[in-house]
């Protein structure tokens, strides 16, 4: 599968990325990652290993000092306009949902397409309702986020990103803040999204999701990428000692 994809378009290419936080902490050490179009990459690793930092550099929420990141042909540089262009093409789903509490579910979805893409509101609304139907919450379209359960909110957040028609979706521990009984409904939506051909980079600890959906699993520790492998190999026969240690801890 990976071989077949390798011939395909490269969606994301990170080379030798180094990040230091202002307090001097070296959060990313020479990390490389290539993601092809349609691929699902799961990033795992112990807490504090730099997974979020890495993911957030992909849409310019975090700065990096050396190395290069090219997304869909656009180089993330210092140019703010390029950064805005990348953000339009990259969707992000957060651990804490981050829905806009003062807007209805529908307005959460339509805000960015109308403001950023300048599309007609009625047309965006039609698309938004379709998306909400796809994630199973079209009946709640006129409620406010505070009236929904965590699982519903996270599904709205996914639909909100999709409404911008992104080429790449980033997920930062999308189920970690959810009650256990709601994890599955969110993973289900993500699985369908992957089956539909979306390119996805997902930070998660859900082993079952990684086994079933990921094309490759990345293990990070202490700001470094230590292992990249297909899921069946990663979970049954991890190569790096830190991978073995990590897997024994989460099982």
């Amino acid at each position: 599968m990976t071989q077949a994809l390798a011939a395909d378009v490269v969606m994301l290419e990170a080379r030798g990325v180094n990040t230091w936080y202002p307090n001097g902490h070296h959060a990313l050490r020479n990390v490389d990652l290539t993601v092809h179009q349609g691929e699902v990459v799961v990033i795992m690793g112990p807490s504090g290993s730099g997974k979020s930092t890495f993911l957030r550099t992909f849409n310019g929420l975090e700065d990096f000092q050396t190395g290069s990141i090219i997304i869909d042909g656009i180089n993330i540089g210092d140019d703010l306009r390029q950064r805005d262009a990348i953000r339009r093409e990259v969707g992000m789903v957060f651990q804490q949902f981050n829905l806009f509490p003062h807007l209805t579910v529908l307005d959460n979805l339509t805000l960015a397409p109308v403001l950023v893409r300048g599309r007609a509101k009625t047309q965006v609304e039609r698309q938004a309702l379709e998306l909400l139907e796809r994630v199973g919450i079209h009946e709640q379209a006129h409620k406010y986020p505070g009236q929904l359960s965590g699982g519903q909110q996270q599904r709205v957040a996914i639909a909100r990103s999709l409404c911008m028609e992104p080429r790449l979706m980033l997920f930062d521990e999308p189920t970690s803040a959810l009650d256990p009984e709601m994890v599955q409904e969110v993973l289900q939506v993500m699985q369908e999204l992957a089956a539909g051909g979306m390119t996805m980079v997902v930070v998660t600890h859900e082993v079952r999701f990684a086994r079933q959906v990921a094309d490759r699993v990345v293990l990070m520790a202490d700001g470094e990428v230590l292992e990249i492998a297909a899921p069946e190999q990663f979970f049954s026969n991890p190569q790096h000692p830190r991978s073995q240690q990590f897997l024994s801890q989460i099982n």
Binding site: R87, Q96, V116
Partner: peptide, 15 residues
């Protein structure tokens, strides 16, 4: 206002 609100808006492409 939590940081996440700004981050969500920026990641949707709002300036």
């Amino acid at each position: 206002i939590p940081r996440g609100q700004v981050e969500a808006a920026r990641s949707l492409g709002l300036n």
